[in-house]
Design a protein around this nucleic acid. Sequence first.
DNA 1: TTCCAATTTGTAATTATTACAATTTTATTT
DNA 2: AAATAAAATTGTAATAATTACAAATTGGAA
Lengths: 146, 146
Amino acid sequence: MENSIKIVNYLLQHGIRPSIQRMAVMGYLMNHQNHPTVDVIYAALSPQIRTLSKTTVYNALNLFYEHGAVATLDIDEKGTHYDANCEIHGHFKCLQCGDIFDLFNLPNLPFDTIEADGFKVSECHICYKGYCPACAKIETESSNHK
Amino acid sequence: MENSIKIVNYLLQHGIRPSIQRMAVMGYLMNHQNHPTVDVIYAALSPQIRTLSKTTVYNALNLFYEHGAVATLDIDEKGTHYDANCEIHGHFKCLQCGDIFDLFNLPNLPFDTIEADGFKVSECHICYKGYCPACAKIETESSNHK
DNA sequence: TTCCAATTTGTAATTATTACAATTTTATTT
DNA sequence: AAATAAAATTGTAATAATTACAAATTGGAA
């Protein structure tokens, strides 16, 4: 794969030694913007890397997080979701289908006013919950039929 | 206690039948703004209501949530935090001491632009992470001594 | 009082995550 | 290249949060 060079560089830039497993996990995150959990990543990679251990996936993701190479998303009780896009952006979790959507057009939240109060901000999460367009539509239609 | 009337009313307003246990849980939430987890609530109430089961605390909180009587906070891996204040407001989680602070002076996030895209918003969470004033101060001082 | 439904309780099961020791891989030194 | 040290991976066991569920209890309606 040509883009494995991109993955290696990304890891090195964040001070992370690349290994087969770490590259696979990071590669999965870069190619899947659906905020996967450990289980999802493990299930996807396990067939290719037959010896892969779930602990390794945990290790890799925790390391990525400590080095600022991924963002974490504590949005529900289904476990931590991971995102290779570390730029601040919002999320929308559909309470019906469970999908998590990215929201890129939100206004920036202030850091300065909070830091003026003495807080040191290192992360900022904005997250909506409700019904996604598809699920909201179904909801509306079924209630019309009543 | 005089304010048990307030608790009963609050539960009834949200269509929740009051019981000894439910009143205790809601009373705890109203009197403790520190976003407790199930464990914290159970540990606090257990001595008073000796027969209290942790399952009952879960049942009560899930019911409260379904009826919109409490807000939930999935801010870390320590389990769900609960908040009797359902008004939209921000939170700050200190990565050092673990405390969660309320932030009331944040600008309102837009609902309309998101709903224009077809999303139906029912919750909106804003959450910062970093170091709280006390922990940030200690950090600064100790690095000065180096 | 009797009966039915709702609630509570305790235990067991499930799921996410971490702890940890043993093995394997990778890098370093000779 | 061989020997050694360090880092990473693996598998299993432990921990913690939450849910499932059946039995016991409570509270209201007939």
